[in-house]
Design a protein around this nucleic acid. Structure first.
Lengths: 341, 341
DNA sequence: ATCCGATGTCGAATCGGTTCGCATGAACAT
DNA sequence: ATGTTCATGCGAACCGATTCGACATCGGAT
């Protein structure tokens, strides 16, 4: 059932049907009704592919997510959900591309053959081939995360450096003197994952400012790894009383390892981190953390992308958020420095 | 940069370029090389939209997921990941459609206007408008889940009825006499969510077979609700010693409520359920549960869909899985019936 | 009676590919 | 010299929409 069929059955030309539907030129009431009747009867819907070819717009955006194999963190899920949601509100469809590995046929299919009007890219590295490729193609894109040369693109990002620094200061204020940073996986950090590096920088800075003893470690994004990570930390660094982390997925495992070791959170051990708000709230005990507004960030990325699609000459915009730390149930004064003892 | 441009620069016709690329007709080695050189120089990639229009195939499948607002359960995420993954392996892209609410413009855009070659639909209701609509359009589709008339469509599904029944028998074997079923949210069940109803049926059957006292309750898909749900159950049903559940997202909250009530799992209280394997394993204590192979099911759905796309006359296929219950850390003999007391 | 501007509709071109039928020319057989 | 075959490549039609320029009709003004 194409537009020609509708035209034939209503006794008008194809262009008239098109104008009747789009309203871009006047069509008499009489004709419009006849056309509409035929359309309703046949359940006709214009072919989106043909429309896209003619208009040069697909009304679809690409969403580049970390490879499907790896499990997404709660925060990443928050991004995906909010991007999909914001896109739907703007009548845009979302084409998923699990990429970031090596071969990346999916990425090339989506980006190379003009299937989409623009792209949102997640989990950007400091040096990122996908960003290079996107810039080559001239396709509008927005990063959730930024490269080592952030002025060259539009992005929204979380200021992990500031946030981890704040976590450390918060813990230091509570009297903790030996603090560990639990980063995300070693591979990710080695691959130049920005947040990992910026967290290290913020941690190092704050630790120096407060003259603390410190240790940094990487940890895969799951409970098991969080558990063994904390076990190792406790064994190797006896005086440790607190952890700052950007690895939300590891937190449940950390809780468990601490409980196993006979340490109560927050009485004996404090944890402060960066996490999606509802994740932090739903943990037991609820995590003291900087609440990342994943919804807003995803929505903002889509909004920026829509603007870029409308006018590719729009100057790059950058949104860097550093939400305040919500004090919940995982930080308390260090016991060994408790003035009452 | 379109195919005409390539043709012009290599001094051949557009059709020759097309044949050189597709190999559907012989092209002399000499000509092919010249064309390839131009293509490489200009970085030309055929426009997927034009190709789709001509071929009548978009090489894209739709994935209908529960509305973005609601948080997806771990099992649902497993389905999404495996569908995306399987599609990528088959060189198919995935268009996301968060649907199931009322307005559903997204669903209609994806399904109505031939943007996709086929659709995978998640979270199917016993009576499901989307299924009706899909059948109307004639678009190939596969359900993850099934309606009240399952023979009318292709699907993969989990045999919740059998699985919950097995959970009850397992608990009964351990001596539990008062068992609760914790279902998913009341709205979902009221809306005719199949697994909710089938779980009820399996529960009722097994409970009757074993002559147990029982109670059924619904619970939203999050830790908070799991907590208040168990608090309520404990208050209203004093002799309760075990729960069977299909609500994996509520389990952490249930653990917490039980701990608050001074009950140790599994010593004082048992839980058996249906859940994604890695989720069940990563909980503390790890959940005794039927391990749903989300990866396989998603992959199988995609495979069935690909078959249907290739030949729409393929008869409907049905895959119903009932994985065995993995005994982990949340079920133990009932204490009140312990022969030693 | 003529001209004018709306108003409503049509035909043709276009987007960027694919594919079918045919033409060209060289090689080979008769 | 003529006919046949095969390898190549060209031109045109087509997929299903949008959009531009042109045209017909008609009421109103001159």
């Amino acid at each position: 059932m194409n537009i020609g069929e509708i035209a034939k059955r209503s006794g008008v030309s194809r262009s008239t049907v098109s104008y009747a539907l789009s309203g871009k030129r006047p069509v008499s009431e009489e004709t419009r009704r006849r056309i509409q009747a035929v359309i309703d009867e046949l359940g006709y819907r214009p072919n989106a592919v043909a429309k896209a070819l003619k208009e040069g717009r697909t009304h679809t955006i690409g969403l580049v997510i970390p490879p499907a194999g790896r499990r997404l963190t709660d925060m990443q899920l928050g991004f995906v959900a909010s991007v999909v949601d914001a896109a739907a509100r703007a009548d845009l469809d979302v084409l998923l591309s699990p990429s970031g590995g090596e071969h990346d046929r999916s990425f090339e299919r989506v980006v190379g053959s003009r299937r989409v009007d623009g792209v949102v890219v997640m989990e950007i590295r400091l040096e990122d081939d996908r960003v290079t490729r996107l810039r080559e193609t001239g396709l509008p894109f927005v990063g959730i995360g930024r490269t080592a040369r952030p002025e060259e693109m539009s992005w929204v990002d979380i200021d992990y450096e500031t946030l981890i620094s704040r976590c450390v200061h918060h813990l230091a204020d509570l009297g903790h003197r030996r603090i560990a940073l639990v980063n995300r996986s070693a591979e990710l950090v080695a691959a130049g994952y920005g947040p990992g590096h910026r967290a290290q920088a913020g941690f190092a800075r704050a630790v120096a400012e407060r003259g603390l003893e410190s240790v940094q470690t990487c940890c895969a994004d799951d409970a098991q790894s969080g558990m063994s990570c904390v076990e190792r930390l406790l064994a190797e660094h006896p005086g440790l009383t607190a952890v700052a982390t950007i690895n939300e997925a590891a937190v449940p495992g950390m809780y468990h390892a601490l409980a196993q070791a006979g340490l109560s959170v927050p009485r004996d051990f404090s944890i402060a981190g960066v996490a999606a708000q509802d994740w932090a709230e739903n943990l037991h005990p609820p995590l003291t953390a900087a609440d990342v507004p994943a919804d807003e960030l995803g929505a903002q990325a889509v909004e920026m992308l829509i603007q870029l699609i409308a006018d590719p000459a729009t100057p790059h915009r950058h949104v860097l958020v550093a939400p305040p730390i919500s004090l919940r149930g995982t930080t308390a004064p260090a016991r060994s420095h408790d003035p009452l003892h």
